[in-house]
Design a protein around this nucleic acid. Structure first.
Ligand SMILES: [Zn+2]
Ligand SMILES: [Zn+2]
Ligand SMILES: [Zn+2]
Ligand SMILES: [Zn+2]
Ligand SMILES: [Zn+2]
Ligand SMILES: [Zn+2]
Length: 282
DNA sequence: GAGTTTGAAACT
DNA sequence: CAGTTTCAAACTC
């Protein structure tokens, strides 16, 4: 099974023809092929590897976790520091029922921070608990069961806009959605919506990622936030942007991004001017 | 909490 | 496909 891609490469089937999911996109040129594969691999972290890399479903060893998270760039570390600092000030929290638990647990974690030289890991593990941001992502290694409520008002929680629906979870009492169909009482509608989205995705997308697998991301299109804020689908997963991303002025790249069109144009103009000058001189 | 900004998701 | 609109989350104050 070999499908030619419209641009520069082709989809080459993996050794196992039965698993279409494991097809890899590989450019024609050998060097490019290596670069691309490497970049893609580097862009992912531990369990977030695409199905192509998850040849076997072996649980990720702790050590891998350490390595991948220690490889986070300054931006992400800084971002997490900021978040944790904000969440660490217990003064901000009114001493209420549920939050006292958190303060206790956070206190333990803060102690660990003081002891450990590298405070990254506990912050990541508790990120979702320590701040109220509702990332539409389910990549928490520790608190897989903890979910943040949605606030959908117009979509009956039947579109990917809805964080609950996107993660294939029923809405919960904390959700503030209107006319919710993702409540367990409209399973027919939910299944319809799921199938519809999967069909559309299957037709439209050139990749094989599951729309409902929020651990995986193909690429972002951030234009204004340099992929260092919670708007970036790559950044919030702790992943580097890759060649699949169409972001601008990205600061979340392992390999430096190709120059943008604007910059290329500017440089071209500058080069022309220089050429003219040199020609005139001689 | 209200209002703004942002980019994914949906649509054309 | 690319451009546009819609949407709810992330963010700011
Ligand atoms: Zn919802
Ligand atoms: Zn919900
Ligand atoms: Zn709902
Ligand atoms: Zn981005
Ligand atoms: Zn990206
Ligand atoms: Zn980026």
């Amino acid at each position: 099974m070999i499908n030619k891609d419209s641009r520069s490469g082709m989809y080459i089937s993996s050794s196992n023809d039965l698993q279409k999911d494991e097809d890899l996109f590989i450019p024609k040129d050998n060097q490019q092929r290596e670069d691309m594969k490497q970049e893609y691999l580097l862009g992912q972290t531990q369990s977030q590897l695409s199905s192509a890399e998850q040849i076997e479903d072996i649980p990720v060893p702790r050590l891998t976790l350490f390595v991948s998270q220690m490889s986070l760039e300054e931006n992400q570390i800084q971002y997490k520091k900021q978040m944790s600092i904000e969440a660490q000030s217990p003064i901000k929290y009114s001493p209420q029922k549920k939050q006292q638990k958190q303060v206790e647990q956070d206190g333990q974690e803060i102690k660990q921070l003081d002891i450990q030289e590298i405070p990254i890991i506990p912050q990541i593990q508790t990120r979702r608990k320590m701040n109220k941001i509702n990332y539409n992502v389910d990549n928490s290694p520790v608190e897989q069961d903890e979910m943040k409520p949605c606030h959908c008002t117009k979509t009956h929680c039947l579109q990917l806009y809805c964080s609950c629906f996107h993660n294939r979870r029923q809405c919960i009492s904390e959700c503030k959605c209107n006319d919710c169909y993702n409540d367990g009482k409209h399973e027919e509608d939910v299944l319809k919506a799921v199938e519809q989205i999967k069909m559309k995705e299957q037709r439209a997308s050139h990749h094989d990622l599951d729309s409902f697998d929020t651990k995986q991301v193909w690429g972002c299109k951030c234009k204004k936030t340099k992929c260092i804020k919670g708007y970036c689908e790559c950044f919030i997963r702790g992943k580097k942007c890759t060649s699949h991303c169409q972001c601008t002025e990205c600061e979340n790249r392992r390999q430096p991004q190709k120059k943008q069109k604007k910059i290329i144009k500017q440089n071209n103009q500058i080069n022309k001017k220089i050429k003219k000058k040199t020609q005139v001189q001689f």
